[in-house]
Every structure is written in C-alpha cells, then in structure tokens.
Design a binder for these strands. Structure first.
Lengths: 234, 234
DNA sequence: TGTATTTTATTTGTCGACAAGAAAAATACA
DNA sequence: TGTATTTTTCTTGTCGACAAATAAAATACA
C-alpha cells in the first residue's frame, strides 16, 4: 500500500460538499451556534471540511442570497445581524403569512397532508411537555411549514419559510436567556387550527391563524420588553 | 509597445464581473431574449465576457437562488420554465402583495418617496401613449416596486419584486404575440392609488390596490384564454 | 436490422495557485 | 508624543487545469 492510496472514507460524492456546508452553516446560524456578527472565514471552513475554497464559496453565496450572511466586498463576511429596530416589519409579515397559509391549507390540502401535520402537532405537544425549548421552537416551525406546504402556493411558502427561519433565531435568543415556556394554550390552538383545516372552513382557518400568530408575537414582545428592562437595570 | 501591454480598456474592477453577468443574464431572461428552456453554457459565457468560469458560476448560483434558472446536477443548466398550470398561485400572491404594499405605503411613506412614485407614474403614462409594450411592462413594475419600497417592509418588498419579475416574463410573452395595449384605465387607477397613499388613507389604498391587481390579472387571463383558443384553432 | 456494450466527447465540479484590495503594523517625521 | 506614510499581512476574487459524471457515438453481437 503506497501513499497514493488515499483513504477512501474521506471521499465525498461530487456535488455533495456544497450541500453539506450549506446545511451545516445554516443550522449553526439559526441555532445561534454562530451568533450574529460572527466572522466567516473561507480558509478555515475549507480546512474544517477538507475541501477547497470553491465549494465553500458556493455555499456562502447561497446563504448570502437568503440574507443569512452579509458580505463586504474584498473584505470580511459575517453572520447577518438581527434587526431589532425594525422587528415590527418581521411581525407584520409573519402574522400575514400565518393567516394566508392556514387559509390556503383549509382550501387546498389533500388527504395525505393531514397525517404529516398531525405528526408535527404531536411532536410539538411532546416538546412542550418535556420543557425542551429548542425542540419547541423547531417543531412549531415544522408544524406551520407543513401547513404552508399543504396550502400549495410556493410563493407564500418560500417567504414563510424565510420568516420561520428568522423567527428561529429570535426565539432561540430569548429562550436561551430566560428558560421561558411556551404556554399549553399554543397546543390547544394548534388543535383548533387542524380542525378548521380538516373541515375546510376557510374563515375559521384564517381567523385562528391570525389569532395564533398574534399570540406568538405578543409572547415574543413580552420577552423582548422584559429583556430591555433588565438590560437597563444592569 | 509589446504584447505584454494588454489593452487596459478590457480590465474590469475586481468583483464587478459577477454583477455584470448577473444583471445582464437576468435582463435577458426577464425580457425573454433567453426564453424558458434555453441552455446556459458556462464556457460560452466565459468566452463572451472574457473571464474565467468562476465568476460566471457565482452569477449562475445567484440566479438559481431566485428561481430564474434550473440546474440539473452534473448536467445542464437552463432558463426556468413558466408554470402555466399553477398560474393561479402566482395571481393569488400577486394580488395580495399589491394590496399589502399599497396599504403599507399609505401608512409608512415619507415625503421624499412621493416624487419617485410620481416619476414612474409619468413614465408609465408616456409608455401607454407611445404604445411601447416593453416600456409599459417595465414602468408598471417600477411604479409598484417604488410603492413597495415606500411601505418599508423588506420581507414584502422582496417577495413582491420576485413576483413582478415573473410577471415581466409572462406579460412579455403575451404582448409580443398580440401587440395588445394596456387600457388607459390603468393610468387613472395609478393616479387614484397615488392620491390614497398621499392622503394616508389605508383602507382606500388597500381597496384600490386590490382592485387594480385584479384588473391586471383579468387582463392577463383574457390574453391567456385567447391564446389557448387560437392554439386550439390552429 | 435491432439491441447491448464499449468508447469517445462534452460539461460540470473541484482544486491549488496567484494577484488585487483593504486593514493592520511598522516606520518616518514633526 | 502624535500624525502621515510606507510596508506588511491577511482575506478575497479570479484564473487555468484536471477529474468525475453523464450523454452521445461507435462498435460488437444476435
């Protein structure tokens, strides 16, 4: 065995590298393992993943396209910051997309969509019971993403996914600080939403989606206000 | 003067290459100079722009991120097709974004926004008068994009821009075939919308935005139906 | 002649190297 | 000591070349 016989376990399939880097960086950004402002070093990533800078750069270009990282020309690239000043624009868009996707799911869902939605609903209930904040955040997002998929409008779905991603960062920020719990109420509201979708009751789905979204926004704003108060006190 | 003294006029600023390729390809796709299904050849583009494949590829990755081109792994990449079967999802999203952005503009616009909007309004009226279909399409999109900017919600604005882009392809498709004209009515509706925004009348802006969007959708559907009838007749 | 298999050709994905641009550090100078 | 200027360092953007993957062409075989 000579040194030209490189270990075959390290060889990746052609094209899988960018996806791996993209997925992993995305998760690290959304879970705040890479907090806003963290520098992203191409060379470092290339060494970490044992590949050249070319596929790394492609993954970064994709992430920049989704607004998850910011690139200063010829200079550094870093994890994009969370815009607290314009948080209300985020809430506005989130509430509307909750409404629209829930309504469209009531209108356009197919029988095979319901088991998927119910599955995430159960995952969410379990996360609440066990008090696992990270699981609560993730399963809630998955639940609503599944509803959006059932609504079958890719334009709304893609915007909604982007908003849920951003929400994942924001929630993660507060729930790691305060170990707050999502109220049981959210589980009940999810059940009501499923019922409205199943019954194809567009108006109820619309109303419940809006109310549920506003509950969540209110919850986040409560934490937001509390954090500010504490910050001032310190 | 030796051959090492390469002509300085061909040198580009570092980083400007990708933007140039991106902008140009984007325009060619939206104007249907590159119709759906056209193959995109990296080597050919590299020769055309006198640069290596690396910056070309970066531009293509960005275009793919916006759904303007489709990439088959290890194989070809081509201009993405227009999904006629699910056109209604496009119309649904378009109408809602017309409404929302117009309402938000009435709520959040600043004095300096109005001259910009009025400017595009005048450009549009002129395009209608001169019967220039391409200019009509472009200035109409610019007019509504400016309104969306005045609404100051980047989430809505980015989705709306994407929809206007897709609309540019669709309209271009019909208006090159039939030399149809946008009715004068649209100009009047634009004027009403500006008045509602200026007066900060949210309800009127919402209502006019919705009605205007539905007018446009109806116009496109009329052409769509006519085209189908003709296709069947042939 | 029609199908299976091998060979060739073409295009993409990845690599290592180099040069440009900007910040940081070092130096000169008052 | 404080400021202006040069030098160095570090990161990014671009390049040309090569390897893998797939389609097309050529060949073998019934």
């Amino acid at each position: 065995m000579t040194d030209t016989d490189s270990s075959p376990t390290l060889e990746r399939k052609r094209g899988s590298g960018v996806k791996m880097v993209y997925d992993l960086l995305r998760d690290e950004i959304l879970d705040l393992a890479l907090p806003p402002g963290s520098p992203i070093d191409e060379v470092q990533l290339a060494e970490r993943f044992k590949m050249s800078r070319t596929p790394i750069r492609e993954a970064l270009v994709r992430l920049a396209g989704e607004g998850l990282i910011d690139t200063l020309p010829n200079r550094s690239t870093m994890v994009s910051s969370i815009d607290f000043l314009n948080m209300h624009t985020f809430f506005d868009a989130l509430v509307l997309m909750y409404r629209v996707t829930t309504r469209l799911a009531a209108q356009n869902h197919r029988p095979e969509d319901l088991p998927v939605i119910r599955g995430f609903h159960e995952d969410y209930a379990e996360a609440i019971k066990s008090g696992d904040a990270l699981a609560m955040i993730a399963t809630n997002a998955a639940f609503h993403a599944a509803i959006a998929e059932a609504g079958r409008n890719p334009y709304f779905t893609s915007l909604f996914r982007r908003l849920l991603d951003e929400g994942r960062r924001i929630l993660r920020l507060y729930y790691q600080s305060y170990e707050e719990q999502f109220p049981q109420r959210f589980v009940d509201e999810h059940a009501e939403i499923i019922a409205a979708i199943t019954a194809r009751d567009l108006e109820a789905a619309d109303r419940l989606g809006k109310a549920h979204a506003e509950q969540i926004v209110q919850q986040v704003q409560k934490l937001f206000a509390r954090k500010n108060t504490l910050d001032i006190a310190l």
